[in-house]
Design a protein around this nucleic acid. Structure first.
Length: 481
RNA sequence: GGUCCCAUAGACUAAUGGUUAGGUCACCACCCUUUCAAGGUGGCUGUACGGGUUCAAAUCCCGUUGGGAUCACCA
């Protein structure tokens, strides 16, 4: 049977980086096996619906390069791919569960349930629906149940979990997992508004969409016994499960908004490349090689193995993310980077030719980790400095240097101003004047950029051009008088 | 608290039961050098603890400790 996997987010806002990792693993697994990867929107909770969330999710996924073979946009043979358009199906299978005595009606009110939980809490037992004492078809009897149904009383349908024995299932990442049945709750399957809960909708759709492998976050592990019971009750073959380790905050808790950015779009806006995000997140919980860190999407696909996924959670370390982005920044083709840089430069109010922009990116990408840092880092490539770092100036500048600098500028002006020439002229004059080249270079940096840090000075000047550089030196000298 | 999951350095990870426990980020030093980076070289730090099984354990088993997830008419 060919592989079919799915990424099934709930449209509650944005794509979480953990969600990206889950989607990515599904995608890698499907592509590796020549199978299909499906996107399904799980919007059964009307109260949590967020306008535009689905579109946002899809656009983040598309940006990252995770593509789906079947989705709400694309359609497919197993549609609809939006759960709110499939409600009839869930009701049908809820009825079937009822018929098979694997589920039952319950009529408890919210208050009654709260009271029950409080009682159990106080008695020191784990809150769990006790169908032998609550108001449901078993305690009420057939006649009363029929009467309540006939008058359309508020009711839900619950899963009838065995009172004894154990529930067992296999997980590709974790091996066999066994849970005492008495610890599994009689989960609500169909809410009083006739909408399904996640548990019902999820297994109905996974089955109907012929999903072969359920690859999802570890937070789902505790509810998997319920899902397994549902598959069994309906006589359906269980898919294979693979629960992925969680992405963690630095303090090891589940990655959350409280402790930093979690939305993929946040990282995108901050200037991380999609290649970085995919590469980085793929290596959180899995590693295809003992001695390599940089992988293209295709390489990830080629080597992906679910069996090699780690069990332990992984801390999302921004420092390493930054390092990786720098790697991509330095290895990507310059013209591609320039295209991406153009809007950033424009936003910063910089105007220059594309060739010049390209030179600037090529020059400064060695010094930053993200493309969008260039405008702030290298403002001087577009605007002449009017202020000069005091501390830096104090270190190299003395009035006695005015003349030598002037002389050096004069000689440079007479040259062709290529980087190598600038270097040679400066060195010659240094030897001649007995002043260290370093002093000249630092002063040129101060005069031309106003800053103490930046790229190679000779290349900076070459790109700025002779006229501009000479003007800046003159301005600096004048300002010191 | 119940249930379940997990445990290689500060972080991410590699290691058919047999390696001096390897790589990457971070950190430190040195080299390069014109500042800062990048790059190069070297270094620091690790199999949570205790028992077993075995000729041999990071690896298998048990326990302890620690961490995490989850316990809704949310997904």
């Amino acid at each position: 049977m060919s592989v079919r996997v799915r990424f099934a987010p709930s449209p509650t806002g944005y794509l979480h980086v953990g969600g990206l990792r889950t989607a990515l693993y599904n995608y890698l697994f499907a592509r590796h096996h020549g199978g299909k990867c499906i996107l399904r929107i799980e919007d059964t909770d009307r109260t949590r619906f967020v306008e535009g969330a689905t579109e946002n999710l899809i656009s983040s996924l598309r940006w990252a390069g995770v593509e789906f073979d079947e989705s709400p946009e694309k359609g497919g043979d197993y549609g609809s791919y939006i759960q709110s358009e499939r409600f009839e199906l869930y009701r049908k299978y809820a009825q079937e569960l009822l018929d098979r005595d694997a589920a039952y009606y319950a009529f408890d009110t919210a208050e009654e349930l709260d009271a029950m939980r409080e009682r159990m809490q106080n008695a020191g037992i784990a809150p769990r629906y006790d169908r032998t004492v609550m108001r449901n078809q078993y305690t009420l009897g057939e006649v009363e149940t029929k009467r309540l149904l006939a008058e359309d009383a508020q009711r839900v349908i619950r899963l009838k979990v065995p009172l004894a024995g154990e529930v067992r299932f296999d997980d590709i990442v974790r091996g066999t997992i066994t849970v005492p049945a008495r610890d599994v709750d009689d989960q609500i399957l169909l809410k009083s508004d006739n909408f399904p809960t996640y548990h019902l909708a999820n297994i109905v759709d996974d089955h109907l969409m012929a999903i072969t492998h359920v690859i999802r976050g570890e937070e789902w592990l505790p509810s998997t016994p319920k899902h397994v019971l549902l598959y069994d009750a309906l006589g359906w073959e269980r898919p294979k499960f693979a629960h992925l380790p969680l992405l963690l905050n630095p303090d090891k808790s589940k990655l959350s908004k409280r402790q930093g950015d979690v939305a993929v779009e946040d990282y995108r806006e901050k200037g991380y490349f999609k290649e970085t995000m995919v590469n980085f997140v793929a290596l959180l919980g899995w590693n295809p090689s003992a001695d390599r860190e940089i992988f293209s999407m295709q390489e990830l696909i080629d080597s992906f193995k679910l069996e090699k996924v780690n069990k332990a959670g992984a801390v999302f370390d921004i420092q390493k993310l930054d390092w990786m982005n720098g790697e991509y920044l330095r290895s990507k083709p310059l013209d591609e980077l320039t295209e991406q840089f153009l809007p950033m430069a424009q936003h910063a109010g910089f105007t220059a030719s594309k060739e010049y922009m390209c030179d600037v990116v090529g020059l400064l990408r060695e010094r930053v980790t993200k493309l969008n840092e260039i405008p702030a880092f290298g403002t001087y490539m577009f605007t002449a400095p009017t202020e000069f770092e005091e501390e830096y100036k104090a270190k190299f500048w003395t009035p006695a240097m005015a003349e030598p600098i002037q002389e050096l500028a004069k000689r440079l002006e007479a040259s062709d101003f290529a980087a190598d020439t600038i270097n040679a002229v400066a060195k010659d004059y240094a030897k001649e004047s007995g002043i260290k080249v370093g002093v000249f270079m630092n002063l040129l940096r101060l005069a031309v950029t106003g800053k103490s840090v930046g790229a190679s000075m000779i290349h900076t000047m070459e790109i700025l051009g002779k006229q501009e550089s000479i003007n800046r030196i003159a301005y600096f000298l004048k300002a010191q008088e």
